[in-house]
Design a protein around this nucleic acid. Structure first.
Length: 885
RNA sequence: GCACGGAUAGCUCAGCGGUAGAGCGUCUGUCUUACACACAGAUGGUCGGGGGUUCGAAUCCCUCUCCGUGCACCA
């Protein structure tokens, strides 16, 4: 066995193993290996933005995927974890444009023109685009990098084109002039999903207009947007509103622009809520979705008073033209005041749509865009509702169902340049849609590109060679699990399901695991602007990738947001150190790996740890089956640290420090068995250190090449001992109790020492209530740090000797006058008081016939037993108190 | 406004009808030859408020409050 370094050096170990895995092609999936005996397991990565850098969100998400993939490999499955990046249309173009502007290369995108800018972005992508991929490798992600895809690759682009044309021919894609969400910052249309509502402190302006036909009759109108008054083309009231019904059909004079106070008709529309505001609504069809619809119903003209970038245009009048929209709002209010129209201004809270990406208020704007009626809606909705596709946690199924029920057509065109160009050409009145440009002269391609998500929704199959019926698709589609954040359930998950049914005729994945959202200690979302998002790479540098993985898994309960605390990463690091040192301890005992366990030589401690290992294997396996990652880490942590290190290793020293070579070898065999199983259990969580130890301890040596001989990655996932094996080792459930009783005795003995502030080796006397084999006594002595431990059934303590009741008998700490009798009396008194209180509680319950007559026998027995236990304890405590004099 | 999730020890969370738990933190000891990134011991909670069901409620039901999220949205 080679010697392990005194300290673990992850900075050296982690890159070394990652390179080795790559060299050995450990991550590469081969569809030809898939068979009944070797089922496929597949995940497609949620492709990070190509411009992105690793965040804690990515760490969480990808660690989970890696755990699932690595465990599947250990379960003997053929695993494909397919990686790649997203071209992220608007986001990437913004980033590159900004950078170019900063560098002084351009002042405006028009300086380069469409082709020039796209070329620059490609250049930029080639140079900086792969950063996040390299970062994922640092984390240990076991993706099949030979299959890395990019949503803007030529092949992928072909898939997108094909899908567009297909939908166009099916009549599901259409072009139309509609009210859309317009981002005045990015200068493009957005889908409804890209708009987030935010609460605003606004001002409600009340102004009045005179009814032309009835001089002296004034209508008061409330608005938050006086700057678009020049775009008003009617006034609407509810026909059922008695206050105004008689005015319908008459006219008012629009106050702005001052130089063009047009006449506006008063129309009747049911949409107007007469309990809101003044009950009179100004109708601005060009700048509000609801108003646009009213306009359509009443055949009103549409006056667009705004430029695409949010400044007011000439139609807004000389006073407002050229002004930025918020400045224009103030100015418009001033103008209303100047002409005596303004009645009042009052503070008002409302919700406003913001562009998710640019974080500016969007404008509703009439424009010519492409829309999609979603395909395969019913299958997609049903597959989740009937449980064929499972969401974890399943409450997201309801959210999904709700969205699927109220689907609105998807605005898929974007007025940017970085993206898949819409495959439609125009020549005069002619329109052509096809994958390739039409033949003939004079055709012009539609200038718009497609929403990024219009390519992402094809990810599960477009990455596997679709539309060809590739062996990869046959073997790995549908994928097994999808791991993603709930924030993109509509953007991505729902749309992938629909695409899956539409083009593959099948669901794209069987399970969706939704991670929580990472928050800081104060419960705030991680964000760049708050500066509360730690850099994962710095965390890796100071704690190791394994530590980061463990720390984040430990704090990620199913279905809840994650409260990130660097302490957890520190704890992960400490855990790795513990693992390392436990392995070193084994090595210091010398000898080769022991593989044969002799059942006849097993101590109670050996049996105990083997049974605890069984439990741990069960718990971890069950937790992983149910995506309860934090539970899995908790089980591992408890088993290895509290049970194996704190109890078993310490107890085993009784044998290891002895002279019985046979028993020593047997103990080492148990240790080697437990450590080997432990490394396997830990591998999905801590791939690097476990691989290093697997080889460092020589556990790989007697494994078949492809089942752990070469890499722990392919060692079989541990199975608990079955009934036959348990019988072979003579392991019975009560064996756990034997060791537990011993350990409890130790705890009580240590308690005595601590109470009396003894921190040296000291004499203990145990008055046993059963026969104790020498081994047990030796373990007790060692763990109590007793010198000596006397076992004496006839022991008569001197007055005032501290003692404790243990499952193995009474343990005494004879201190020969050293103790403070008063303190000991207080201590025993306290325990006695507790026993009395508990006894009283149980006794009271048992005395209540209401209780005894209605309770099941089992509960009754439990209470009876508890009563007897407390009674006995109480009696002994009274004796102890009496002995103190 | 509608829906969902959460409120348990200082912190993060488990328990989801039968004696309130874990880890971390805090405090006190200890360099006990694997590990001070450690070991040992201790401290700490009327389980958000109110009501109900039950022999018995942290756990089930109703209601309120607060935090978070999604959807809808009226100028």
């Amino acid at each position: 066995m080679p010697e392990l370094d005194k300290t673990y050096l992850p900075a050296e170990v982690e890159p070394r193993w990652y390179q080795r895995w790559l060299d050995d092609k450990c991550f590469e999936a081969d569809p030809s290996r898939v068979s009944e005996k070797r089922p496929a397991y597949s995940i497609v990565i949620p492709p990070p933005n190509v411009t992105g850098i690793l965040t804690l969100g990515h760490v969480l998400n990808n660690t989970i995927q890696d755990i699932l993939a690595r465990r599947a490999r250990m379960q003997g499955k053929e695993v494909l974890w397919l990686p790649g990046t997203d071209h992220a249309g608007i986001a990437t173009q913004n980033v590159v444009e900004k950078t170019l502007k900063k560098q002084g290369v351009i002042k405006h995108r028009d300086d380069l023109g469409r082709e020039g800018l796209v070329a620059k972005i490609w250049e930029w992508k080639e140079k900086h685009g792969g950063i996040i991929i390299e970062q994922l490798k640092k984390l240990g992600a076991s993706c099949d990098w030979s299959r890395e895809r990019f949503t803007f690759d030529d092949d992928y682009n072909a898939c997108v084109m094909r899908v567009f044309v297909d939908l166009y021919q099916k009549g599901l894609i259409y072009r139309g002039k509609r009210m859309v969400n317009w981002c005045p910052s990015s200068l493009t249309a957005l889908s409804d999903e890209e708009v987030v509502m935010k609460a605003q402190n606004a001002i409600m302006y009340h102004f009045k207009v005179e009814v032309v036909e009835e001089p002296g009759t004034w209508l008061e109108i409330a608005t938050t947007r006086p700057e678009v008054i020049p775009g008003d083309t009617a006034i609407a009231v509810n026909p059922k509103d008695e206050r105004y019904a008689h005015l319908i059909g008459k006219n008012v004079r629009r106050p702005l622009p001052v130089e063009n106070q047009a006449l506006l008709p008063i129309v009747a529309d049911e949409h107007v809520d007469f309990t809101f505001g003044t009950g009179v609504l100004k109708v601005t069809p060009a700048h509000d979705k609801a108003d646009f619809e009213i306009g359509q119903r009443h055949d009103l003209p549409v006056i667009d008073v705004m430029h695409p970038n949010g400044t007011l245009n000439e139609l807004a009048g000389k006073d407002l033209a050229g002004m930025e929209r918020f400045a224009a709002r103030k100015r418009a209010a001033e103008l209303l005041a100047e002409i005596g129209s303004l009645v009042k201004e009052e503070p008002y809270q409302n919700n406003l749509g913001y562009s998710e990406r640019a974080d500016v208020p969007i404008e509703s704007r009439l424009s010519e865009q492409w829309f999609l009626k979603y395909p395969s809606v019913k299958e997609s909705q049903d597959v989740v509702a009937n449980g064929e596709m499972k969401f974890h946690p399943d409450r997201w199924a309801k959210v999904y169902d709700h969205w699927m029920t109220g689907l609105q057509d998807w605005c898929i065109s974007r007025q940017v340049w970085w993206g898949h160009r819409i495959p439609v050409w125009y020549r005069g009145e002619e329109t052509y849609c096809g994958i390739d440009a039409p033949k003939g002269e004079g055709w012009e391609q539609d200038p718009d590109v497609l929403d990024t998500w219009f390519s992402s929704w094809l990810w599960p199959f477009a990455t596997m060679g679709w539309p060809e019926k590739t062996s990869t698709l046959k073997a790995f589609y549908p994928t097994t699990d999808l791991v993603t954040g709930p924030d993109i359930i509509f953007f991505w998950v729902a749309r992938m399901i629909m695409a899956g049914f539409e083009w593959m005729g099948e669901l794209p994945f069987k399970n969706v695991y939704f991670t929580g959202i990472i928050r800081d200690k104060q419960g705030r979302k991680m964000s760049k602007s708050l500066g509360n998002s730690p850099d994962p790479l710095e965390l890796i540098a100071s704690y190791s990738a394994d530590a980061l993985r463990f720390g984040i898994m430990r704090s990620a309960p199913l279905g809840q947001d994650i409260c990130f605390d660097e302490k957890n990463v520190e704890l992960g690091r400490n855990f790795c150190t513990k693992l390392w040192n436990a392995a070193r301890f084994r090595q210091m005992q010398g000898g080769a790996t022991e593989t044969e366990i002799d059942p006849a030589l097993l101590s109670s401690d050996d049996k105990w740890i083997l049974l605890r290992l069984n439990t741990a294997i069960d718990e971890v396996s069950a937790a992983l089956d149910e995506y309860r990652f934090s539970d899995a880490t908790a089980s591992l942590y408890r088993f290895f640290w509290s049970e194996y290190c704190d109890w078993y290793v310490e107890a085993s020293k009784a044998v290891l420090q002895g002279s019985d070579e046979k028993r020593k070898a047997n103990t080492l065999a148990v240790i080697d068995f437990v450590l080997g199983q432990t490394l396997r259990l830990f591998h999905p969580f801590l791939p690097f250190i476990t691989e290093e130890l697997w080889h460092g301890m020589g556990f790989n040596q007697d494994m078949p090449e492809n089942q752990g001989g070469n890499s722990l990655m392919f060692a079989p996932w541990p199975k608990p001992l079955d009934a036959d094996e348990l019988a072979h080792f003579g392991l019975l459930p009560e064996d756990e109790k034997a060791a537990n009783d011993k350990y409890e005795t130790v705890v009580l003995g240590r308690g005595l020492k601590s109470t009396f502030n003894i921190n040296k080796k000291v004499r203990f006397v145990l008055q046993p209530n059963q026969e104790l084999p020498a081994h047990e006594v030796e373990v007790l002595r060692l763990l109590l740090n007793a010198e000596p431990l006397e076992v004496d059934a006839a022991f008569t303590p001197t007055k005032g000797t501290p003692s404790a009741l243990t499952p193995l008998g009474t343990i005494f700490l004879p201190l020969d006058g050293l103790i403070d009798v008063e303190a000991e009396r207080a201590r025993v008194g306290k325990e006695l008081a507790k026993a009395e209180a508990e006894l009283e509680k149980v006794a009271a319950k048992l005395a209540d016939t209401n209780f005894t007559s209605k309770v099941p026998q089992k509960v009754l027995d439990e209470h009876q037993q508890r009563k007897t236990d407390w009674q006995e304890k109480l009696a002994k405590l009274r004796e102890m108190l009496a002995a103190l004099g």
